[in-house]
Amino acid sequence: MGRYVARRLLQMIPVFIGTTLLIFLMVNVLPGDPVAALWGDKPPDPAQMAIIRKDLGLDLPLWQQYLNYLGGLLQGDFGTTIAGNRPVLDQMTDAFPVSIRLGLMAFTFELVLGLFFGVLAGVKRGKVIDTGVTVFTLMVISIPVFVLGLVSQQVFGTQLGWVSPNVKDSMDMAQLVLPAIVLGSLSLAYVARLTRTSIAENARADYMRTAVAKGLPQRRIVSMHLLRNSLIPVVTYLGTDIGALMAGAVVTEGIFNVQGVGQLLFEALARREGSIIVGIVTVFVLIYLLANLLVDLLYAVLDPRIRYA
């Protein structure tokens, strides 16, 4: 087990270097000049641009820029922004706590309700409640997230006044509830459907018949035998989703005025701020890698037949 984890962690190093290099190169291929962008639509000042480039090392050849960046990264230095000359790390430490909160809230929401609905529908398959869950999830899946976001903002924020339509303080958990629900709703539908299918399938398995024949109470059958065995596909999905929730919140963050990573990334892209883009993506890559590792380890917990050596 320990060796397996160590090997997986070591594998992250080449993946990490590969992705940062790729993103670094891709940002540089994008048309547009981040230094000239400081002047907006006015003509930039060449003398000033030359000095700014020199100070930020942007006049060096690309490979040298990348090595400098990697060197800085190893010392925990994510570089400096071109606009405003602020440390990228500061901007990231402002944005990440917000997005992690939002992501985790959405994740909890989808996990709890998704599993609940899924189990309910799977156990009562063919009944009204099963049809109800199927229809509900189908509806959520077919509505694009920005429609759901804007409509719920109008209904619960502007019309009913239950919550403020926009998030005023991005660190306040209470204000993040609505955005988190919107963000997590699509995944909730998927989790519910995956759980339902998996449970419906396993309910006919031999070990289930044995458990029922042994006279175990219904609650124990569902939670210990049925659910645990049915969770593997769900956990796989959840593992990749936790990254997606933090990384893919651009639209939701925009609608509800949440100052998170999605917004930061969006602005950085518009201004071609390479150092911010690479920094954020690097963290995302790490989150994905760790989440995947966690999923693989969870398999062993859920299914004792799976062993890692």
């Binding site: 804007l150 903002q153 109008q154 924020g157 502007t158 403020s164 339509p165 926009n166 005023k168 963050e253 925009g254 609608i255 509800f256 005025n257 949440v258 100052q259 917004q263």
Partner: peptide, 18 residues
């Protein structure tokens, strides 16, 4: 001077007097 990320968010707040 409140920081908004999108003008539609700001517009909604303007309509609702926020």
């Amino acid at each position: 001077l409140k920081a908004y990320t999108s003008d539609t968010a700001a517009y909604n707040d303007l309509v609702s007097n926020n």
